[in-house]
């Protein structure tokens, strides 16, 4: 049996979602409009890929495009129109 394949596909390492660059799937990307942002953190909670970066004291820094798959949820839920989706292609 090749070492590359674990027994029955068992995943024995945690935190391995970091290995999967979901950003590859993207056809749209979010732009963070800093002047409108009130740092409410709603987009952070909604992001399915947990790729919106922020400081420990809740200051939004921007999106990690390696993992952002361009779903647009963040732009949709932002109460201040502080995230704008742009085409990647």
């Amino acid at each position: 049996m090749s070492k590359k394949f674990s027994l029955a596909g068992m995943i024995t390492k945690d935190g391995n979602s970091l290995d999967l660059k979901t950003g590859d799937w993207r056809i749209r990307y979010p732009v963070h409009l800093k002047e409108k942002c009130k740092h409410c953190m709603l987009c952070v909670v909604y992001c399915p890929e947990d790729c919106i970066r922020h400081t420990e004291d809740a200051k939004l820094l921007g999106m990690d495009l390696q993992y952002c798959k361009g779903c647009g949820v963040c732009a949709k839920v932002c109460p201040f129109d502080a995230i704008e989706m742009k085409s990647d292609v």
């Binding site: 049996m1 090749s2 590359k4 394949f5 027994l7 029955a8 596909g9 068992m10 995943i11 024995t12 945690d14």
Partner: peptide, 21 residues
């Protein structure tokens, strides 16, 4: 240990798991 069993395996690995079996 945090493990996960019975995952999705597509064209790149399903065949290998069946061969294992």
């Amino acid at each position: 240990r945090n493990i996960s069993m019975g995952p999705l395996a597509l064209q790149d690995s399903f065949f290998e798991f069946r061969k294992q079996l």
